[in-house]
Design a binder for these strands. Sequence first.
DNA 1: CTGAAAGCGCTTACAG
DNA 2: CTGAAAGCGCTTACAG
Lengths: 345, 345
Amino acid sequence: MKGKITIRDVADMARVSNQTVSRVINNRPDVAEETRQRVWQVIEALNYRPNALARSLIQQRSLTLGVITAGLQFLGPSQTLNGIIRQAEAMGYSLLLKELPHFHSNHSRPLLNTLLARQVEGIIWAVPEIGDNRYPIDDQLHQVSVPIIYLTMRKLPGVSTVAVDNYLGGRMAAQHLIDQGYRHIAHISGPLDWWEARQRQWGWFDTLREAGLSVSEKYSVPGDWSTASGAQAMTHLIGRYPDMDAVFVANDQMALGAMHAAHRRGYRIPDDLGVVGFDGMPEAAYFAPPLTTVSQDLRELGSTAVRQLSHAIGFDRPDDLVFEPGYISLRPELYIRESSVPNSS
Amino acid sequence: MKGKITIRDVADMARVSNQTVSRVINNRPDVAEETRQRVWQVIEALNYRPNALARSLIQQRSLTLGVITAGLQFLGPSQTLNGIIRQAEAMGYSLLLKELPHFHSNHSRPLLNTLLARQVEGIIWAVPEIGDNRYPIDDQLHQVSVPIIYLTMRKLPGVSTVAVDNYLGGRMAAQHLIDQGYRHIAHISGPLDWWEARQRQWGWFDTLREAGLSVSEKYSVPGDWSTASGAQAMTHLIGRYPDMDAVFVANDQMALGAMHAAHRRGYRIPDDLGVVGFDGMPEAAYFAPPLTTVSQDLRELGSTAVRQLSHAIGFDRPDDLVFEPGYISLRPELYIRESSVPNSS
DNA sequence: CTGAAAGCGCTTACAG
DNA sequence: CTGAAAGCGCTTACAG
């Protein structure tokens, strides 16, 4: 460790007091031009960098946001983080990042405490709602003195949440398959302790039922989001549901596995079997065949969360405005490709 | 903002001095058991959380690492970040995350300054080396008072770097295709201003030349890493290199696009055309056909970087040991699948 | 236009 | 075992 240069060193060398240096680095107007110049020269000569910790301490403002994420090795969480960090930098916030050891972890307390100890001005809880992994947070929510924005979970009163409308996405997928003439539409879901997985499943279920098509929970087989599990689920479905002529798969990766397994069993896609995925990963346009998918804009999800959080923090908000917690729902979009458009139709 | 509880509030309420509270929260032994209990009770009652900023200021220790990344929306950077954060949390470090607006950006200076102002103890430069995007950092390296670990770039004296051996990976891919009996092996590279792309290309080139096979820069077409560009590059190659019987593609996503385009042009994979990718993304095992690929462990890359950085910082290092900057090379691994194993061989 | 004093919320010697 | 004093590196009133 080299001895750090402090504001005192600059002040001494420029023969002014430290608060004149402070005025210079904060671009205050009330400094003689000649003094300003001299101070800047010393700052550059010494390569002085003001200590942001000291500044935060006195200003009671850290300009830092905390993010708690999970499963960063997967596409979704990292897309979301990408959106968060972009928007945060654009708004002048730094990001303190924490990751849960795994999706189901309910050891979020120490992570939350670390963030709060470091005086973050707000927190984004970017962990999908799975089972009761959110309870520890709800539990201590009333003890947390900074605003929290939740991502991707169900509506709760008094809580700010941003989420993609997964139920609508499920409906869009199912409706599209119906429109294309498919009548026996199965589902490969995500793990059913995931809120997102259940929403997509319900969208599929409700749409089929409302259309008067035969539908049953038996026609829905869960995977674990992985390509391998999609292949396995498809094999189960083939055994269980011989009439099946289409399948809505809850993410693109499982859809890839499902198409792979169906192909090996002699199904031609889309003629024997229509397939729709979920997520809109760019590679899906190059699967064999190109995959129809319900696209969700997770980067938009992330940046929306940061904007909401900034409002909730309120430094940029007029004093007479009050932040109202609310639920923001993002609309997914259907990308239609070969996998769901039979040649005969 | 609720009025924050400070150590003074706890001290007053527990009728002790603030340094006794300090002793309790830092688990110092020299506190009477009865006092300790009383203080803890007050801490819990007031839900007191020590301010980490104040602590860092006096202890001259932030327990924070800075990470500069780019392109988090892509698989590679987010895998690497995943490895970094895991290891950082395991070692008790928090992470301050910054992202360059795009890969080529050379506006890294403000990001670096923000990190240093916040007193990070070390920095991981997790940006691939592209063109001269590293120069701004090299430029001010001598002014930076904390250790930096670079990821994924060429060897430089006096600089600590961790990288996958991309040259070796290129060699492994080419050698494997030769071993499988292919003789006219083309290459789809990444953008050639990327160091990684050039390394993989050279590995391919050298291996073919050493094997006495015909090889030329003309047989190498660059893509931009995207699936779409892989398809396009393959179309070019088909026109340019009619004898081609195999291709080494510099990442799995372009390999997907390349297989897609080749398939449309009537090539059967692997019999008419052998294909090897790079990265080892899990989905590659489910491509049509399953893709042989050179796998790189980017999470290992990230965690290795954190371990190195921790050594360089030196709080856990005996005083008589000196940290020697060095170059750590990670070995990739070949996953052999259908796309490169002709049925006739 | 500039500086002496006080303080943000902690920890580190130093007394007793 | 416990507390009064000093200080980490800044900024914020307050004088002049």
